[in-house]
Design a protein around this nucleic acid. Structure first.
Lengths: 226, 226
DNA sequence: TTCGAATGTGGAGAACTCGTGAAGACATCA
DNA sequence: TGATGTCTTCACGAGTTCTCCACATTCGAA
């Protein structure tokens, strides 16, 4: 049975959605604000999340971003606006679909089913970046070196992904900070070095002589293209 | 030096932003309303535009739309409202980022830098400069002479790139120092000579008789256009 | 050709860059 | 709350690059 986390602060809507989903054969988890949504998502690993954008406190965009930092769970956004632009923003942030309020619960269920189908279909053939002994499964956020899985933190993964997507291309520390933290100000560029150090310890055969993530003196780092 | 057009009708804010940007090393152009923003943008071709949404007369969305009709200059929107709608519409119209008032000037500068970096990264995709036997791969910062790769330091690369991008154009030592060090204050111009020396040793067939990087007696250096 | 100024060049030390371990800040989860 | 893991920041050492000087060479103008 598929489990859906519904994040919605308006009780009436939450109840409506829950009833419909139950009836449609889903198990429903509920959260009324951003922080509890995040911890529930982490604890329960639902198969999909329905997220209202207009939450009190932390807004839906932030929730999405932080979910995406560690997970590729499918997300459907609920938004009060009918602008068709939502789709673009949603997709940019990593949502899989959106539904505008007022919505018919029937439609919501249909979209949930569609997204779940798509997610399952994509499961096998997800986007994978390969480079040398490295394999990066983007939707699963999983990395293997010579077939052996290595555990990376969120930052390490983001860093590696940016670098490995364009081997040979050189990135400055500032660019890499952007990749890891969104926009970075008031921040110490050399924290990138620390991540690189940890990353190398995990993926390099000999971290003292890195062959995958290479330093470009005076400029930044690159993924080896040799 | 990057040039930023600031479109803002509130004088106090405009001045604040201008001072901060100047201090951060940007050249600032200013406009207080939509029409003058459009004509300034067309005439001056700034590297980036910071646009207040709450302008009198023509509103910021219109300005964005009309800018986008002819140009892909990066745009950051300033908005007093934190409404989702504004962000969504703004991004939909082609803004690159937005900052909500009240904002910290530091953050604005950070976002400007990030957007410019992103713009440059997108532009430079696969950009290669060729000139005679020389080939310069900009994103990879790789240089080959007659197919053979040569290893350059960061400064040597920057110097060579500036020269080779416009063969025949003569650069003074001061200009070349800018290229290497950002802004040159209080610095010994003849260190350029030292870089040129090292550069020639690496890329010239006969460093005693330079054919690529040529001295222009009494003025500076140029890349050969013959 | 001669002279003064501009440029070439080798080399020493200053300045910078990077890797690293460690400490504290911060977030997360039980 | 405490335990755990991650991220940021700092300071030091090792290595690389840059700057700058002194002197040699070349250039251009009379």
């Amino acid at each position: 049975m598929k489990r859906v986390l519904v994040v919605e602060d308006e009780i009436k809507i939450a109840r409506l959605v829950r009833d419909y989903l139950n009836q449609a054969g889903f198990e429903v988890l509920e959260a009324a604000d951003g922080p509890s949504a995040l911890s529930l998502a982490r604890a329960e690993r639902p198969d999909m999340i329905v997220l209202d954008l207009g939450l009190p406190g932390m807004d839906g965009f932030d929730v999405t971003r932080r979910l995406r930092a560690t997970s590729s769970v499918p997300i459907i956004m609920l938004t009060a606006r009918s602008e068709e632009t939502d789709r673009i923003v949603g997709l940019e942030l990593g949502a899989d679909d959106y539904v505008t309020k007022p919505f018919s619960p029937k439609e919501l269920v249909a979209r949930i089913r569609a997204v779940l189908r798509r997610a399952e279909a994509t499961l096998g053939g997800g986007e994978v970046v390969r480079s040398g002994p490295l394999e990066i499964d983007i939707p699963k956020r999983r990395v293997t070196v010579d077939g052996a899985e290595v555990e990376l933190t969120a930052s390490e993964f983001d860093l590696l992904l940016v670098l490995a997507r364009q081997p040979g291309r050189i990135y400055t520390r500032a660019q890499l900070l952007d990749a890891v933290r969104g926009v970075s100000f008031e921040s110490y560029e050399r924290s990138v070095d620390a991540h690189i150090k940890n990353l190398r310890r995990k993926i390099e055969a000999d971290p003292k002589r890195p062959e995958l993530v290479v330093t470009v003196y005076g400029v930044g780092y690159k993924f080896s293209d040799a």
